[in-house]
Every structure is written in C-alpha cells, then in structure tokens.
Design a protein around this nucleic acid. Structure first.
Lengths: 295, 295
DNA sequence: CTAGACTATCAATAATTATGATATTTAAAA
DNA sequence: TTTTAAATATCATAATTATTGATAGTCTAG
C-alpha cells in the first residue's frame, strides 16, 4: 500500500525541481528523499523523474501522475482538517430554519462568512413558515430558527429578539380595495385575505387573519403569487412587495389603523438547554448582530 | 503523516463491524488492526470506535470521518490505476479530429465504449472541416482523423477507407432551384453554392465547388444554416438534411448527373510511422469496424 | 453458565525507514 | 580550462515503526 509520505515527496520534489530542496523542506536528509522517490518508482513501476540533468525533471508519465498525486494529498489534508474540526468540538452539521420572508441577501452573506470560519461544518438550510419553526426547534430537528415573533411562548425554546421587519397590506392594482381610501379594519372583511400559516394549520399569533374567508399558504412567496392573481389581499413584508408596488402591479392598501408600516418583531430561537458548539454560537451571534445592524 | 494502511483499516473495520474480520481480510493478525486503529485515533485525537459492546461501532465522529476516508482511499486507488495504465503503455490522452458531418451517434457510442475500456486515457475531440484534418494529423497535433476522402494523398499520413456517406444537393424550398427539374451541372452555375473548406482556405478535392460565386464555411452545420436562409444551395450529407427535407423546409435539387445520391468516401487517417499505443489501436480498429458496420 | 469469539495489551521480533558518509555528476564561476 | 559548489545515488548502520504471538479480560448466544 503506497505511502502518503512518498506521494508528498513526489509533489514537493516536482514543485521544487530538486530532491535536496524537498528534503530540506521536509526536515529530512537528501538520501531519504532519493530513496523515497526510488521506492515509489519501483512500487508503481513507473520512472517518475528524468535524472540526466542536475535537477530532476518529471517525465511525461510523472507529469500524468502528479495531478492525481496532488488530488490525493489535498484529500488527505481535508481528512486531517475534519479531524481537527472534531477535536475543536465543532458540530458536523447545523440545521437552520428561516422564514422565507427573512431569507435576505444579508443572511446569505452571514452564511458565506460562516463557510469561511467553519469550512467543515455542513449547513442544512430549510425554509418554513414561522409558526412551524418553533415546533421543529423544540423537537431538536432544527438548531437555529429565524422567524417572526410568536406571542405564545414555548417553554422548551429560547427566544432572542433581534429586530423587526415592516409589513404592509397590499393587493393587486386592479383589486377592488386598491381604489378605496382610509379603510378601517372592518372594511377589509368582505375581501379575501391571503395569509401564512404552518403545515400544522397553526396560524401566527402576531400576523392574525381578520377575515372569515381567508386562504392559507405556507410561504410568503406563495402568498405573493396569489395576490398577484387578484385572489385576495395580504399582509406582506415591505421588502418583498416593494419592487411590484414600484412597477404599479401591486398597490399598498390605505388602512387608517396603520398609517405607518406595521413592524413585526423578528426572533432568533434555539432549543433551551441544548449544548451549543462553537459553530452554533458563532452563527447565533452573527445572526444577532446582523439583524441589529440591518435596521 | 497519516498512513493509508490505517485508513484502510478504519474503512474495512467500519464495514465489517469487527477488527478481527478486518485483520483476516487484510491477511494480518488481529492485534495489528487493534494497534493500527488505536494509533490512528491517537494521531487524529478522535475516538473512532465505541468498544463498549463486543463488536466495535463507529462513533458519530468516526462516522463523519468515514466518508472522507472512503474518498481518500478511492483517490489512492485511482492513483494506482493510472500508474498501471502507464505500465501498460497506454497513452495519457488521444486527440481525434472528426468532420462535423461525421460526428454521428454511432461515433459517440464508440467513444462511450472507449471510456469503459480505457478509463484513464483522456480524449480530446475536435471538430474540423475535412481539408483541415489531414494537416493537423500530419503535424502530429491529432492522433486520429475521421474525414471525407482527399484525392491529394499526403505522404506523411496513412489513409484507411472505412465507408461512405451519401451527399445530396439541397436548397430552401423557396429557392429558385427548388422549382426546376432535371438540372445539369451548368444549370447550377448561376446560383450561389455554399461549400466547405478549411481554415487554410483549402477546399476539398472531392467536394469541389463548381460555381464561380461561392460562399465558404468551415463546418457543414454553418453551410446548413446558410442554406436555410436561402443564401444559396449546397451539397450536404443526406443524414444532415433529411429531417428538414421531411418537414418541407429544404428540398433536394433534381440534378440529372446524380440520379442516385452521391456517395463520398470516408477515411480514417493517422500519422505515418507514429507509434500507436493500445488505446490508439483500439480506437482505430473500433472506428474502422463501426463505419463498415454502419453501411 | 459456558463455549466461542471478540478486543486490549505487552514484550519480542521483523521490517521498514532514516541517517551519515562517500563517490559521482553537473552547471556555473574563476 | 579548471575550479567550486551543489546536486544525486549508493551503501552500511542506526533508529523507528510495524508485526507477531501469547495472554487476559469481556461480551453474546445458546
């Protein structure tokens, strides 16, 4: 079975163009490298270096094997890095659940930084409606949740308020509500509201539906799609609808009880008492700071 | 530096669920594996197996490292396979040039078989107009060429006739020639012919352009595109134009001097005196048989 | 409860690898 | 041309590492 030490000698000697230089870099004597390469050549049955000149030059065959040798070394370093990651008690993988309306470019940036800080921790990113997130965190299926606040405080889960997102009532520009002004809550009642609730049919305590004939979606993007089809009106994050309000496709509804955008608090949640590894802590703190800074 | 022998022990022991079984499979004694795993655990600083039960079970950390270990082993086998390929004197790469009109599904099938027979020989497949192929083969830039016959025999190149491809004269259905019947060669003269010639502006000796106001392309597909635009008429492989003749977009030109399709011979070429490795020979023979069988 | 099979450990041994000295070659400098 | 510094190959020896065989303890199925 071939030795990685010899493979390393092959790669280093090829790069440096010298067995002696390779030996110096490896902290060994020259004859060790000379022997190592020789034995590798014997084992493989391939002449790797042309020694006719003073400095050994890779043969075409050696060149062909060099690429594979480098890949092999890279793989072995990867293996060792994972072992180091484990000795630092880093988690193998983190599962985070994010309300789809909160999956902003800002959050993606945090994940990019995370990938640099913890290259050997996998991320499992799932999109859920906020009402579903608490349950999955409480079950231990998700390590960190990013969601809109729930009034009902779950005892098994830690909450951390990190900021808020502006919601507005919107409808299609041709929807009957669009033409009306200074509406009260009861004025909205006759029209169908599109609202978010989780798969367990549990609706948010904060983003309550007020109309009797509502339709439900498990994602804000689905809500948006239905609003665009004039199926109803909805409360949606300002950032999500802004582009379409701009083009005139959608229109904000002029409701008197919220003359300024309704700010919905955002919470970071994780399971109470769960042991948090370094990756978990890093990501939690980064998300906390990110949302605070974003406002 | 970690040893592949120990990595192998890790993978085998994990698969078999037993150090003893692993030792038997490796032809060693049990204590060797026990020691090997122990040392690996010490080197990595990670407990790989849980030994509380009779049969060792991977710890979650061991599980995490197992994936990477398998990849590492696979890479090392790949490395050894390449060395074996070299000792069999297989070429590192073969460059083959094919006239674009001859790059049929049949030829792709041959390449698929080649990939199975010679998994460590790279293929460089380049499309050229036939007149260019001889030159690149003669220069040694291309190992095997598949092209339409050239009358001018190049002394540096070996030819091997393998079959023939039917050519027909075609034009767009709305092109003036389409309406005419029983045309002679001179009747074609007034109309622009689209013909193939190489980048060196050397036109084929077999597929000669007969009209004074010709346009030139370096690929049959370009010719086809121009014909579709009613820029002129052309001789093209029947297989290439058949689908469009069928839909009525293009039409065969009724020329009296070839009442049956004009069959253009196809040659396999390679450099005279070039030393042919096993992959070269295999591919040459396979291509020869394929074209013979195709007719 | 016992038989069979498993693992850890240890000391002895075998095998591998590293070392240091030396001869030889090479490329550039004097 | 000669010289010099640095490179490689080879070899016997030293050091390290891996392997072995024996032993003791442990687990599981019957």
């Amino acid at each position: 079975m071939l030795s990685l030490e010899q493979i390393n000698m092959l790669v280093l000697s090829a790069e440096l163009g010298s067995f002696s230089a390779c030996a110096r870099k490896l902290g060994k004597v020259q004859s060790a490298v000379s022997h190592g390469i020789s034995n590798l050549e014997i084992d493989l049955g391939v002449e790797l270096f042309d020694r006719t000149s003073r400095s050994p030059k890779l043969t075409p065959e050696g060149e062909r094997l060099l690429r594979s040798a480098k890949a092999l070394l890279a793989q072995s370093h990867e293996f060792e890095k994972i072992a180091e990651s484990i000795t630092r008690h880093e988690e193998g993988a983190l599962t985070i659940a994010v309300d789809d309306a909160l999956l902003t470019p800002y959050l993606s940036t945090i994940l990019a930084l995370f990938a640099q800080a913890f290259p050997h921790v996998e991320i499992d990113l799932i999109s859920l409606a906020s009402p579903d997130i608490i349950a999955t965190v409480a079950d231990g299926n998700v390590d960190i949740g990013v969601m809109f606040s729930e009034v009902e405080a779950n005892k098994q889960v830690d909450f951390c308020y990190v900021g808020s997102v502006d919601f507005v009532a919107v409808c299609h520009a041709d929807f009957p509500l669009a033409a009306l002004r200074r509406l009260s809550e009861s004025d909205l009642m006759p029209y169908r509201q599109i609202a978010v609730r989780g798969q367990q049919k549990r609706e948010s305590q904060v983003l309550i539906s007020m109309t009797p004939n509502a339709w439900w979606c498990s994602s804000n993007y689905s809500v948006l799609a239905l609003v665009k089809q004039q199926i109803g009106w909805a409360y949606l994050p300002l950032s999500l609808v802004q582009p379409f309000v701009h083009t005139g496709l959608l229109q904000k509804i002029d409701v008197t009880f919220d003359h300024k955008p309704w700010s919905v608090p955002v919470d970071l949640v994780c399971k109470k008492g769960a042991l948090r590894g370094p990756a978990h802590q890093w990501l939690f703190d980064a998300l906390k700071n990110a949302f605070s800074a974003e406002r």
